[in-house]
Write a protein that binds this DNA or RNA. Structure first.
Lengths: 404, 404
DNA sequence: CGCATTAGTTCAACCCGTTTACAAATATGT
DNA sequence: ACATATTTGTAAACGGGTTGAACTAATGCG
């Protein structure tokens, strides 16, 4: 909305406007920016002085070769503001730091603390410290962070519900706990939603404003992006498609709690189906899919059945949210053998099926999503928010200083 | 984003900020507003002078009874800016004008021009004229409008697709045509989405930020509100749940084009089912439902079957978008006899079903939704947009004047 | 009727951005 | 090599918008 109209706010706005343009347009001179934005040259110089003093921009060269005086070229100091992202899974935590230009300056993977709860919170905080050290930047330069977690984060109550795999987080005010430990503003996202966001940032969803990401592995889950926003639902449970009435009778008491679709296409279901057809016992799902190349007709039949269920699920998803594309991920969903069968199935039940592709980022999708989400939040805070974004501290009798 | 920081913009911002506060806080004095907003008294008086000169605010009384000098109390001139809304159906067009306080100042219903196309466009334009006359306001005071239409409006291409019931609109750039005729900025919305918006504005969705509205009549359709925004989908086809894989095999070639769910629960399906059970022929669906009170076991069985399908559809919708509530509307959906059966069905397939209620606005829901949507658009244009919102014309050697 | 209190105006001062003018630096043409 | 056109960047004067302080106006209260 419109910001405060006080005189002091005007400079704050100019600072934001100029910094944003430098970020968007890359290395640029003051005169050039003055022409583009309409801000006068004297003001531009003054603004650059403040931004440079505060460490936001730095000289990155001189423009030469053209007629006239050579220009000082400035660019944003990428490490002035960093964003922390972490994708917390039941077994692994992936974490990284990204700078303002979108470059990942440090990344790591560790095993999740099996004790869960506060141990995981502490572990995440340590990761932030480690990464800052690794990237050789001040810890205080991390201004925002996003944590991806399995489960539904209810923004209204601030609590994380339905958390599988990690002990001691069910019903926890995880955001507040993390903020207290990390010392910067934290947002929480569902792991599959984050994977969708990641694919949009630099994966199979690049350039799309509305699409769905379906993670098909042990279980099944979905993240939907609609008009560039994550579809969250009233309790943060949107995309929990395990319960879709597909593959089994939804009114059957056996599927009442576990979810019809998941009992039809989850890893356990695939194994069960394979064994029921007389296939080898205790075989990993990956191995079952591998056997397709050995002309295992049982594996082929099982996969066909699974694909028909996934196809119907995609039909349902398209009926409700109309995605431009469906991206398949997860250990099963990202198999080419599954994709081709799903495409076939979808062609059999939809007159105008969406494009269907495989995740480009694999297991890193979730992490990249948290980085994208965190960067977006920081961007909004710096450039879109009302009032004082704390870009450059108001000088009250002193020098300009740190960020809020 | 942040607006232009030029000096001239500062006053524009102050105007917007002040006008918005007056709208939100109702009748208020200048001194009071100065205290609340932090804007100084001299500036506040100057701003009020401009707003009054331009007709945005007017004196509405004096504050007396308190110690000290009595204050002039101002409020927004409600008819300074009006919004036009129209819900265009196959047989009827409902249209209305709403002022800035949200009060409907004129409303009408007419039969839709059967010739369709340009005739309907002209008809809508005439309605705007008629309503302005009826409300006794200048036609130019209508600053924005929203038209609800059946079909999917693809914002990317600007064209309306899949239009049933109205001739000559398929594939049309309907927004541009309407804007040309109406002379103010127009937005297009799907009729069911508009009904959902209407229920949120002043119906069964009041106070909810995420819910679904399901229209069950001749066909079946849905509008979803997620985080106060309409879920549109990539091609504006979100909520077209006629094709949900419920009630029939989605891979059956007979339901390939018509949609599994719609062939199971549409009016035609209900009649067919009833007749197949040996019920009276050529009976209106409304009459079939009426017969429940006469202990017609065939009607009961048909309705139970339909409710089970709707229940499974709601399960699917909840799995995908997690609404806080499902509102049933349309000629069939708004029947109490249907609601109770659907509630029963849902309890049989969901551990934690959403609340399910009947539309409070009936056939006016769509119209109210267009008014809500149009008001929201105007609000954004006036108060949230970048740069010059044209609230008060820049004085260039003359008096302040009209709006853009 | 005087006083405390609140509403609203006048005026000088300040901050920010712009315009204009000018100094500094660089490529180009002769 | 040198003048010239061109561009960058700074200095000074100016103007618009907001503010704080001082002031006038109006009202309730004792």
């Amino acid at each position: 909305m419109t910001d405060f109209s006080s005189v002091a706010m005007m400079r704050q706005n100019t600072l934001r406007r100029v910094l944003r343009e430098i970020l968007l347009r890359g290395p640029i001179s003051r005169a050039e920016l003055a022409r583009i934005t309409g801000v006068s040259k004297p003001t531009m110089s003054e603004v650059f002085r403040e931004l440079e003093e505060d460490g936001w921009v730095q000289v990155s060269g001189r423009r030469q070769g053209k007629v006239g005086r050579s220009a000082m070229v400035y660019s944003v100091a990428p490490q002035r503001a960093l964003v922390f992202g972490a994708d917390v899974g039941g077994t692994k935590i992936r974490a990284a730091l990204v700078d303002m230009t979108g470059e990942i300056v440090a990344e790591t993977v560790v095993a999740t603390e099996p004790s869960g709860g506060d141990f995981v919170v502490a572990q995440i905080a340590d990761l932030a410290d480690d990464l800052a050290r690794e990237a050789d930047v001040g810890r205080s330069r991390i201004l925002a962070g996003t944590i991806g977690l399995p489960g539904a984060f209810d923004a209204a109550t601030g609590r994380l519900m339905m958390v599988p795999n990690i002990e001691g987080l069910e019903g926890s005010a995880i955001r507040d706990r993390l903020e207290a430990r990390l010392g910067f503003s934290v947002s929480i996202g569902n792991d599959v939603n984050m994977a969708a966001k990641g694919e949009q940032w630099r994966g199979a969803g690049a350039g799309l404003s509305s699409f769905a990401f379906i993670a098909l592995g042990t279980g099944i889950g979905m993240g939907v992006i609609n008009e560039n926003r994550i579809l969250s639902g009233a309790r943060g449970a949107a995309g929990e498609i395990a319960t879709l009435p597909v593959g089994a009778d939804p009114y059957d008491s056996r599927t009442f709690r576990s979810g019809a679709l998941e009992t039809a296409v989850g890893s356990a279901a695939i194994k069960d189906r394979y064994e029921a057809l007389g296939g080898e016992r205790d075989l990993d799902v990956r191995r079952i899919i591998d056997r397709l190349s050995e002309d295992d007709h049982r594996a082929a039949r099982v996969l066909d059945e699974v694909a028909r269920c996934v196809g119907a699920a995609i039909l349902a998803v398209c009926a409700v949210v109309d995605p431009a594309r469906v991206i398949l991920g997860g250990s099963i969903g990202s198999r080419q053998e599954v994709l081709s069968r799903v495409r076939m199935a979808v062609a059999g039940c939809m007159p105008a099926p969406p494009s269907i592709t495989i995740s480009q980022l694999g297991s890193r999708a979730g992490l990249l999503g948290t980085l994208a989400e965190g960067s977006e939040n920081l961007w909004n805070e710096l450039f879109e928010a009302d009032g004082d974004s704390g870009l450059v501290r108001q000088r009250a009798g002193g020098e300009a200083g740190e960020v809020a």
